[in-house]
């Protein structure tokens, strides 16, 4: 009975985190972007500095008509937002938050599981792009597919480098093996992983699949109301997952002063700081062209990650 209750609590906790943290990141983005650009951002909804802006947005989305274009592939079109969103929920369960088994569920092949499931999210964008029967959507979908090819390999290679350092692919296991000097040792891998992750999330400067000044909103052009809101939620849930994963793999997750009692706080702080960097990059850099991303990935990110693997291998064999 106890273990059933335990599982139910974990499921509820994951769902709550999944619904709250992306909103926090979204609201932070409103405010941070506004202040970096010398304006105020939302100030009205909720009274205090527009804290309820995203709640108001949600109410608006829920009341909007759900338009499915007559030419679209109806079922696939309607299913696409769910396919884009759910992988990030699944990934959250495997991310360790604190020491002593403070994790949704310790998956043995955690690193592998996380990378595999995150890749599924892209299918949602592809389905949306193809099923919309719209030229902008199709272009967006093809760009999404091309982007997948650019970032997936450096992401896999740098994750493999961490697995080599730890000698395990279990995420809690990687954190148990962590020492502070891993941060300088794996720094190149960390930067590559984070950059590739930004490309996966289609965040600026890698947002050409949704480039609004070129192709309206890419694969999501035809979406309205709730389904559009789910795509947006998927993007922000993706930021949370990517930042948490980067924190766990490359910044030591819950490690820090007083990690015994405050480990979960360290994970949150590191994730939050990385999310801030994601927003900062959006404000700072112009959008790359599609072929510039490919060139960046194949001529810089992949050679760097191969070099990181070589470095990790040599150091690991020398010290053991």
């Amino acid at each position: 009975m106890d273990s059933t209750l335990d599982v139910v609590l974990r499921l509820v906790a994951v769902l709550v985190v999944f619904l709250v943290l992306p909103l926090v990141v979204g609201q932070t983005e409103h405010k941070v972007m506004a202040h970096m650009q010398g304006r105020l951002g939302p100030m009205y909804a909720g009274g205090f500095h527009g804290w309820a802006q995203l709640v108001a947005d949600g109410v608006k989305f829920a009341q909007k008509e759900d338009v499915v274009p007559a030419a679209a592939d109806r079922r696939v079109f309607q299913l696409a937002p769910a396919v884009a969103l759910l992988p990030y929920l699944l990934v959250l369960i495997a991310i360790p938050v604190g020491p002593h088994g403070f994790v949704g569920e310790a998956v043995d092949a955690g690193l592998f599981f996380v990378l595999a499931v995150m890749g599924v999210g892209v299918l949602g964008s592809l389905m949306a792009g193809w099923a919309s029967a719209n030229k902008f959507s199709l272009l967006g979908g093809v760009r999404t597919a091309a982007q997948l090819m650019a970032y997936e390999v450096p992401m896999l290679l740098t994750a493999a480098s961490v697995a080599m350092a730890a000698g395990t692919v279990s995420l809690p296991g990687i954190l148990d093996a962590f020492h502070w000097w891993w941060i300088p040792w794996q720094i190149v891998g960390g930067l590559v992983f984070f950059t590739a992750g930004l490309a996966e999330l289609q965040r600026p400067p890698f947002d050409m699949p949704v480039a609004d000044s070129e192709i309206i909103f890419g694969a999501y052009t035809e979406y309205t109301g709730l389904r559009f809101a789910l795509f947006l939620l998927a993007e922000y849930a993706g930021i949370v997952v990517l930042c948490a994963l980067t924190a766990v793999l490359f910044l030591g997750g819950w490690h820090g002063p007083m990690s015994g009692s405050l480990g979960w706080l360290w994970t949150l702080v590191k994730t939050g700081l990385l999310a801030f960097v994601v927003i900062w990059l959006r404000v700072s850099y112009p959008r790359l062209r599609e072929d510039q991303l490919q060139k960046l990935a194949w001529t810089i990110l992949i050679p760097l990650s191969l070099a990181q693997i070589a470095l990790t291998g040599v150091v690991k064999v020398v010290i053991s």
């Binding site: 937002p81 759910l86 929920l89 949704g104 043995d108």
Partner: peptide, 17 residues
Amino acid sequence: HTYSVVGLVAVVGVLFV
């Protein structure tokens, strides 16, 4: 046990949607 919990998360997600 691990993967049945993962499966349950998927069920929760589908229910949410």
